[in-house]
Write a protein that binds this DNA or RNA. Structure first.
Lengths: 233, 233
DNA sequence: ACAAATTGGAGAGCAGTGCTCTTGCATATG
DNA sequence: CATATGCAAGAGCACTGCTCTCCAATTTGT
């Protein structure tokens, strides 16, 4: 099945794909830190030095896996979003947040790779940043859509002063036009809360305090909806 | 200075302490994953096999470092708390949350060790759980103190149903007596938000969206205060 | 106080790792 | 068709965690 005749370029992308999928399979068993180039090669019936033709270093392979993970998570969130275009903002937030959480539980090691401790002495190249943005864009869109249209009020219990220059303005104005400043700032809380929850759940920090994580997640998402959705929703 | 005569028992605890502090020093340079028993030994002028007399395995050394890190963070939070016994709850939350964040920035690799991705195939022993509780206890105390005394109202914008059995009841009733159920549930949001923030900041996820992390942290803590403090505060 | 038992350091050694370099063959290009 | 490039193989280097044996120093039991 893999001994079909192929041009050199085709063979190359095929090898790269095989290396990545083999790595993902091995990573699913024992996690990213234990991922070994030699084992990947062995698994593919290849000699270890051959891997270096495709990934000059282990970190390069990890970078590729990180980008793929971000994209996979982003695509998964986008699909969830597409499935609930009709719903109200609160419902959409539940659906998308739930899809993020489910992806993380299905791919715990890949989640740890992108949202766990970064590899020390490793700076994420620009490539990864673009891929990382996809999932946050989906969340931002939910909030922006909810505020499209009119006279809706901010649910502020206490007035919190928003300092100018606290957030980067560029991205926000394009992605969340017409959304109050305080809500933009709160949207970032929602974002980090969702991932904070998933990390705490996956990494075992809720053991001893949260019993029913499914119900608690619903509660958290509801509270987050209260934070960023306009009063009429 | 270290060749003083010592009993065997004394020498043993001294060696254990030296191994741990050397490990911490090396970890500060290149992170936990790169921590090598052989390098620790070399640094101590010891042969590598001797380390195994004290820590039968690398994971055991890491476990010890994890427990120490939890305790160090917990003690730091407790000290911050002691420094603001006089303040109002909101101020105390700012002080303690700030001390957590500062500890994390001062000890990034140790933070990553306890709140980053867990070592795959490694179950935290009971010891670590007790140590991990200290910092959360400080946060819980702030909320509990704020509610001590009387007719204060919950800041609920929308009624969120709290399902029975969502949280573990045991710990909460002892630590946060007289606090409404919804506030207990929200206290966990505050807790994970603080650590979610610190993780996102330390691991670089705010790059591109948050510009002034100091100000933004203040904003987040204020919002969290609004979530769990009674209306009169 | 002396023999016995325990402890801890030294050193060699094993299987594994990431990575480099050279060799030789297959493919693509002028 | 000759030449240049691409890629697999294999040996090798420096490193890792961990085990085992050996031996000296200390602690313990009588």
């Amino acid at each position: 099945m893999s001994d079909v005749r192929r041009s050199r370029a085709e063979a190359r992308v095929h090898q790269i794909e095989t290396i990545k999928s083999t790595s993902r399979r091995l990573m699913a068993k024992s996690g990213a830190p234990a991922l070994s180039l030699r084992e990947v090669a062995r698994e593919m019936g290849l000699v270890s030095s051959a891997i270096y033709r495709y990934f000059p270093t282990r970190d390069d392979l990890l970078t590729a896996l990180i980008v793929d993970a971000y994209n996979d998570l982003g695509a998964s969130a986008e699909r969830a979003m597409a499935r609930c275009v009709e719903g109200d903002p609160r419902r959409r937030l539940h659906v998308v947040a739930g899809s993020i959480r489910r992806w993380a539980k299905r791919n715990p090691h890949e989640y740890a790779l992108i949202y766990g401790s970064p590899i020390p002495g490793y700076d994420a190249p620009e490539l990864t940043i673009a891929a990382a943005t996809r999932v946050t864009l989906v969340l931002a869109t939910i909030v922006a859509d909810a505020w499209r249209g009119a006279e809706k009020g901010v649910r502020a219990v206490v007035d919190v002063p928003i300092h100018d220059g606290m957030l980067e303005r560029r991205g926000f104005e394009r992605v969340m036009p017409g959304v109050p400043d305080v809500t933009r700032a709160r949207a970032i809380i929602v974002w980090s809360q969702i991932f904070g929850f998933v990390s705490f759940e996956l990494f075992g920090h809720y053991k001893g305090s949260v019993r029913n994580t499914n119900r608690y997640f619903d509660f958290v998402v509801d509270e987050m909806a209260n934070l960023v959705l306009p009063t009429s929703v």
